[in-house]
Amino acid sequence: MSETRSPREVFQSLLDGITEGRFAELARLYAEDAVVETVFEPVGPRRLEGRAALQERFAQVAAVLPFRLTSKNVVIRETDDPEVIVAEWDYHVHHRESGRTVEAANIQVMRVRDGLIVHTRDFHDHLALVLVGGNLSQLVAALDAKQ
């Protein structure tokens, strides 16, 4: 019988997969009925439900990701709920096309049950990612179109 991975170990696997560009493998870290809320996502989906939706989203991201992400300053905090951690970290973001580099702050509240992610609330510095790619005007147009 194998030991179930802790929330800390699951988060580290997720972060490693993202920074190593292994997006095709990430969905397997999530439960079939997982929910991911990306609270400050400016134009994309703010809520994804189910492993299949997450797998599709990871494939979309992998197909167009214009930058390399390196994680640093990672702090994982345990909570009074053994299923929940709060992770804080920065991404060193290097945009391949523009050559620009920026730091982007992140916080994730993650619930892991039986070794799989069942829920996350993600708080990422999306504006930093827009700026590093020189895409501010596209963001403004997309936000204007949502009105």
Score class of each variant (00 low, 15 high):
residue 106 N to E: 13
residue 119 H to L: 14
residue 54 L to H: 03
residue 51 R to Q: 11
residue 24 A to N: 02
residue 90 D to R: 12
residue 107 I to Y: 09
residue 106 N to T: 08
residue 122 D to I: 04
residue 91 Y to G: 01
residue 146 K to H: 15
residue 7 P to W: 08
residue 59 A to T: 04
residue 53 A to C: 07
residue 123 F to C: 13
residue 1 M to C: 12
residue 7 P to L: 10
residue 86 V to F: 01
residue 101 T to W: 03
residue 89 W to L: 08
residue 23 F to A: 14
residue 131 L to K: 13
residue 4 T to H: 14
residue 79 T to M: 03
residue 133 G to H: 08
residue 143 L to S: 12
residue 45 P to W: 14
residue 79 T to Y: 01
residue 62 A to K: 06
residue 83 E to G: 01
residue 93 V to D: 05
residue 51 R to N: 02
residue 80 D to Q: 09
residue 129 L to C: 03
residue 117 I to H: 05
residue 39 V to S: 04
residue 78 E to C: 11
residue 9 E to Y: 04
residue 146 K to G: 07
residue 19 T to Y: 02
residue 146 K to M: 13
residue 83 E to A: 06
residue 44 G to W: 04
residue 89 W to T: 02
residue 54 L to N: 01
residue 68 R to Q: 08
residue 6 S to L: 09
residue 34 A to N: 15
residue 62 A to N: 09
residue 127 L to T: 00
residue 3 E to Y: 11
residue 128 A to H: 03
residue 26 L to I: 06
residue 101 T to Y: 03
residue 75 V to T: 12
residue 99 G to M: 07
residue 87 A to K: 09
residue 63 A to Y: 03
residue 40 F to M: 09
residue 21 G to R: 01
residue 145 A to L: 09
residue 99 G to W: 10
residue 146 K to Q: 15
residue 93 V to G: 10
residue 36 V to S: 02
residue 20 E to W: 06
residue 1 M to A: 10
residue 46 R to S: 06
residue 109 V to S: 00
residue 33 D to N: 14
residue 15 L to V: 01
residue 42 P to S: 07
residue 66 P to G: 15
residue 8 R to Y: 08
residue 71 S to Q: 15
residue 135 N to L: 12
residue 140 V to P: 08
residue 7 P to I: 07
residue 104 A to V: 03
residue 129 L to H: 07
residue 34 A to K: 11
residue 124 H to P: 00
residue 5 R to Q: 15
residue 16 D to Y: 13
residue 73 N to I: 07
residue 98 S to G: 03
residue 115 G to Y: 01
residue 142 A to G: 05
residue 74 V to R: 10
residue 15 L to Y: 08
residue 41 E to F: 03
residue 146 K to W: 05
residue 62 A to F: 02
residue 44 G to L: 00
residue 129 L to A: 04
residue 96 R to L: 15
residue 114 D to F: 00
residue 145 A to Q: 15
residue 118 V to W: 11
residue 48 L to G: 00
residue 40 F to I: 04
residue 120 T to W: 12
residue 144 D to E: 13
residue 119 H to K: 14
residue 78 E to P: 07
residue 104 A to T: 05
residue 81 D to M: 02
residue 11 F to S: 01
residue 54 L to W: 05
residue 67 F to H: 14
residue 136 L to T: 05
residue 134 G to Y: 00
residue 37 E to K: 11
residue 17 G to W: 10
residue 62 A to E: 14
residue 64 V to P: 07
residue 125 D to Q: 00
residue 42 P to H: 09
residue 144 D to R: 14
residue 85 I to H: 02
residue 21 G to T: 04
residue 100 R to N: 14
residue 21 G to F: 00
residue 105 A to Q: 12
residue 86 V to M: 00
residue 33 D to V: 01
residue 72 K to Q: 13
residue 74 V to T: 13
residue 53 A to H: 13
residue 117 I to V: 15
residue 6 S to N: 08
residue 126 H to R: 09
residue 143 L to E: 13
residue 111 R to N: 07
residue 48 L to W: 13
residue 37 E to P: 03
residue 85 I to Q: 04
residue 14 L to G: 00
residue 107 I to Q: 11
residue 8 R to A: 06
residue 60 Q to P: 05
